[in-house]
Every structure is written in structure tokens, then in C-alpha cells.
Amino acid sequence: MLQRSSAHPTPGLLRPLGVALLLVSANVAAQELPRTADGKPDLNGIWQVMNTANWNLEAHSATQGATEILGAIGAVPPGPSVVKGGHIPYLPEAKAQKEQNFQNRRTEDPEAKCYMPGLPRATYMPYPFQIVQSDGDLMMVYQFAGAVRTINMSNHQPAPVDSWMGWSNGHWEGDTLVIEVTGLNANWLDRSGNFASEQRRVIERYTMLNPYVISYEATIEDPTVFSEPWTLSMPLYKHVEEEARLLDFKCAEFAEELLYGHLSKDAAARSNAAGEQP
């Protein structure tokens, strides 16, 4: 950009005009956001990321996947870091845990087990989710594992119980929906073993940029795992297909061989044939 600017300098008189035009268009965009009856941005719709954060939140080259037998189908697509500053600030012991998670990712990633992904991972899995925005609360329904959570806009309280999808207290800061999520079970944050504990507090910010794009940010505080709070950010894109809807991805049955295959009659027979006790 700098080289191009110096080769083709913008005439000084036009520069302020360009800035003014940008401001006007940004202002028009803000006014054109779809809005609900109470004037808030209307986030209703089916949304999905278009990135590789679920493979690895940090910058990553294309690599062989955890299951080589799948060939290129199981390979990891490349992607830039979605973490502000580039790296997740792990405490030393947690960093070692992350590395161990990576080694065991084929069998230990909660995604492989079809466990509900918690926050913020649910947002950037390669599956759509739907926001249903009522006159009061919101509901977010995720295709993966049929996970679902209510965003409590008025019934703010501490998480009454721990759960996979946590307890969400939401409020509006201008046109940004801010959600504090607590009461989450410990969970992985991606397929490369990044993780957070049940102590984490996640602050999400949903800011609609135009009718088809939401800017998503999540700040994760977890003093047992990270040396400081850190933030990931990415756009969410709206599904605009006519009649777009969430379809089932009830993955429990796809995880049964992984979780329970060793308890099947066939496995016992194989063990017996090998001279082992079932």
C-alpha cells in the first residue's frame, strides 16, 4: 500500500473529501441496519464464520490431519491467527497441557466426542447457528450437537449451575450486543488443543456491520490458564439462501465407535481372538 501510495499520490485536495465520503457511507450503513421494534439491530438469521479458527485459533499452515487415513479430506486448511496480538498468553503449565492436548487430539478433542462446544468455540465451528431475537431475550441455536443457549437480557444473575453452554447475561451497548458467559465447563477451544478451564469468563461482543455481516469479538479471562485476558475477533456471515434453515447435526451417533467401540461384542471377540481378556 505504501509503495503504491508513493507511486500514485492522492491529490491533497481530494484526501479530505475521500475521508468525508467514507464517513457518510459508514453513517448510511449504520442507519440501514435491520432493526427490531425497539430500535436494536435485528440479529435474527443464520450465521456462520468463513475461517479456519476451529482448526487452530493461532496462525497455522496447512498440515496433515490427526487421522492420516482420511488423506487430504482430513487435512488442516491454513489460516491466520484470529487472536489479537497473534498468540494466546498461556501460563507455562497450561502451555504444556495444550501441547499434550494436541498430541491426543484425535481421541480427546470434545468435538470428536460430540460434546457441546461451549463458548466461544460454538461461534466459529464450521457449522451454522441461528439467532432468534425476541422482544426480550435471545436464543442461539447451534447446528453442532444441537447445542442451544438463552441470552438473558433482563434476568441477570450468576450462573445457577455449571453447564456446557454456560449462563449468558446480555445487554446492549449502543448497537453492540454484549454477552457475559460464565458457568462453563472446561472445554477445548479448537482442534489443536487450545483450551480454557471452568474458571473462564467470556465477554462476547456482536456488532452488526451491515445486514449480512456481524463483527464478533470474544475476550477470555481465565487466570488459571492464561497470564492475561485475550481477545479473538472475526466476522460472522449471514446465510442468505432462500429458506435457509438449520439442519440436524446430532453427532452423538457419529462418536459412538470412538467412545464405546471397545465395549462392543465385536471388540470383545477380537480381544478374545488375540488372547486378551475382554
Partner: peptide
Amino acid sequence: DSAKERSLSERCI
């Protein structure tokens, strides 16, 4: 015989 032979509710589907 295996998880797949159990009922859909026991399998949490």
C-alpha cells in the same frame, strides 16, 4: 451387541 443396537433415547440421540 454395540451402542448402535441400543435405543435412540439411551444413545441420547
